[in-house]
């Protein structure tokens, strides 16, 4: 069902042979239901086995194939070729170091994720034998959206603050902290605030909103970060008030 061919320009880089990245052009068939990832797989299988990129699920849930497609961070498995003109430019995710071709380094994100303690710190310990914590559908809904992050790092790539100030904890990590803070079972907010409300934390965010526009899972990290700011501000006022009252 190929109706025409389409040009794909891919940013290549091999630290062992290149001093800087360069563009390489491939001609691939255009299929109506192909996504950009299908085109990359076509290249890998039929044209150039030395092209490197990450992918796995092909259904927008594993988060492996984030890359810049015509300048915007996208999942290659969810970007349909039919939505583009005759030339598609594919680059590694912006703001991250390029390891090789479309593969970027993930260490920074992984260490930031660990710093915000993205796990349940129970309000009250309850032995497993006593069964589940109760949580109403409303309480679940309160944080559910923020638990949908697939760690694709597209929001970091969309966020100009992260690009300019790499120490910024960034949208996904803070959103996941917020997800646990909002969980009715959790009592760990104070511990997370050390990182989240620090100079490298939420206050680096100036609400550009690009993270939420780019997020392929509609997690709305920008919203989460503004909520964290409001909550942190209220904390500060409470603290001032209580010290004043003493």
């Amino acid at each position: 069902m190929t109706d025409r061919s389409i040009e794909l320009e891919v940013l290549r880089y091999n630290p062992e042979t290149d001093s800087e990245p360069y563009w390489q052009r491939y001609s691939v068939p255009h299929h109506h239901e192909w996504v950009v990832l299908d085109a990359l797989n076509h290249i890998k299988e039929n044209i150039d086995p030395t092209l490197n990129y990450r992918w796995s699920c092909h259904m927008a849930v594993c988060g492996s194939c984030g890359m810049m497609i015509n300048g915007s961070p996208k999942l290659a498995c969810k970007s349909f070729m039919r939505d583009y003109e005759n030339l598609i430019r594919v680059e590694p995710l912006a703001h991250f170091p390029i390891e090789r071709d479309l593969v970027t380094g993930m260490d920074d994100f992984v260490s930031k994720l660990a710093r915000v303690k993205p796990y349940l710190i129970p309000k009250q310990d309850k032995p497993v034998e006593e069964g589940e914590y109760r949580q109403t559908p409303a309480e679940l809904k309160r944080y559910k959206q923020y638990s949908m992050c697939i760690n694709c790092m597209i929001c970091y790539s969309a966020c100009p603050e992260y690009g300019l100030i790499p120490k910024f904890l960034g949208p996904a990590a803070i959103t996941l902290a917020h997800r646990y803070n909002l969980d009715s079972r959790d009592g760990g907010r104070e511990q997370r605030q050390e990182e989240v409300a620090s100079g490298e934390g939420v206050w680096e965010c100036t609400f550009v909103g690009a993270c939420s526009e780019a997020c392929p899972k509609h997690v709305d990290p920008a919203g989460a970060l503004q909520q964290v700011k409001i909550a942190s501000t209220i904390d500060w006022f409470k603290e001032q008030l209580s010290s004043w009252l003493k």
Partner: peptide, 27 residues
């Protein structure tokens, strides 16, 4: 060419980044 032999870090312009896309310009 001189080989880099390590991950490549792309530069971001401090003064021109907001021309990159419409969202940034609106911001």
């Amino acid at each position: 060419a001189k080989v880099n032999s390590k991950p490549y870090q792309r530069e971001i312009s401090n003064t021109r980044w907001y021309w990159r896309n419409e969202t940034y310009m609106r911001y």
